[in-house]
């Protein structure tokens, strides 16, 4: 599998990243190198091996359904670049 500039553009758009034209070339080249390496790994026989989603052996970590303290509005809004009363504001969204 190899990726070209169009694929990079699409992935970038999905990830909200902005690339300059020459960066697209660099990225495509570098990603292809990574994919070539992954292809090598794909040749290994992994039948009978469970997928590794987690590297730690722990499982079943739950919390009880008990209400804790939420943040004060002042703290909630302290990092917001734009706000209006008790709301965050974002550029107008049309459904």
């Amino acid at each position: 599998m190899s990726v070209d500039k169009e694929v990079i553009k699409k992935i970038a758009r999905l990830a909200n990243l902005y690339y300059k034209e020459d960066e697209l070339d660099t990225s495509a080249r570098e990603l292809n190198q990574i994919l070539t390496y992954v292809e090598k790994l794909s040749k290994l026989d992994t039948g009978g091996i469970n997928p590794t989603f987690q590297v730690s052996p722990i499982e079943n970590i739950y919390r009880d359904d008990i209400v804790g303290k939420s943040l004060d509005l002042e703290h909630v809004m302290s990092n917001a670049p734009e706000k209006e009363g008790k709301f965050f504001t974002v550029p107008k969204i049309i459904d």
Partner: peptide
């Protein structure tokens, strides 16, 4: 439930805006 799925903020409906966040 009383609380949200991944944190202990209340999941109650109709409360003051942005008062149940962490």
């Amino acid at each position: 439930t009383n609380t949200k799925i991944f944190c202990s903020c209340s999941a109650k409906f109709g409360q003051t805006e942005n008062s149940q966040v962490c």
